[in-house]
Design a protein around this nucleic acid. Structure first.
Lengths: 139, 139
DNA sequence: GTTGCGATCAACCAATTGGTTGAATATGAG
DNA sequence: CTCATATTCAACCAATTGGTTGATCGCAAC
């Protein structure tokens, strides 16, 4: 469960896992090779790799009893696309005078129907549990 | 604790939090406004915002009893920089013949001192618990 | 001052996470 | 077949996470 974007971000939230990705960007490596610099057990590294694997960040093939780990660089695009989208949107806000007006407007109405403020999500986005019809609590 | 990069990635690993960031890229909003579309309690949203806040992704100011949340778009650069660095490195691997040789070489020596294979980390990178001197297990 | 709204704090709970150790599996070497 | 190597599976544990409800705080309005 959980969309890929969530899994990729979660995978990279761990410094050890980020370090592994960094090293894999230079060359494929086996589990043992990857484990070498860290203090943790081989099994712990294996777990980290499973996380990376089912986030789609790495893939494993088989070479005798070795399982070389390979970085799937294409997954980075998924993140970059998400990040860039909202970064751009945020940046635009500072260049248009619109934003200032919208801000003041939002400040005044506060509880208006406000179309467009809720759930901007676009084509490839994921859906958290929504209600959108204020059914929570005393609303 | 935990470096900012870890905190930012962790913060964005949650779909609800990503949705909030998406909405905040359009306009600042109060906690109540942000909470509106979701099924969860106001307190849960408040917690999500705390996570976003101490990852540096958002900041909060004060306006009477309201606490408008503002997206700090500059933090995106931190991620983008990290991602791009390793993506590029991985991509270069496919364009240089070097990579093939390095790969075969690594395959042969396997337990060589191998400078550069362990911990590629650069200037701004974080440090997971390392040993680097194979002190683990029976090694 | 008291009421009411916006937001947070506190205590609690179930599920997940990152780690451990010990046993098992898979493959190649003797 | 047996042994060694490389890796994973399984059970367990402590800490963290995302959610809940109830109490509290800050501020403005009556």
């Amino acid at each position: 469960m959980a969309d890929q974007l969530s899994k990729v971000f979660a995978a990279l939230a761990d410094p050890t896992r980020r370090d592994m990705v960094a090293r894999l960007s230079l060359a494929d490596a086996t589990v043992n090779e990857l484990a070498e610099p860290y203090q943790v057990s081989l099994q712990a590294v294996s777990k980290h790799l499973k996380v990376l694997e089912d986030s789609g960040l790495v893939s494993r093939t088989r070479d005798a009893q070795r399982r070389p780990v390979h970085l799937e660089d294409n997954v980075f695009d998924l993140m970059t696309k998400w990040i860039e989208r909202y970064r751009q949107q945020a940046e635009e806000r500072y260049q248009r005078l619109d934003s200032v007006l919208a801000q003041m407007d939002a400040d005044e109405v506060t509880d208006d129907s406000d179309p467009g403020a809720a759930s901007v999500r676009g084509p490839e986005d994921d859906s958290p549990q929504l209600t959108h019809g204020r059914s929570r609590k005393g609303a």
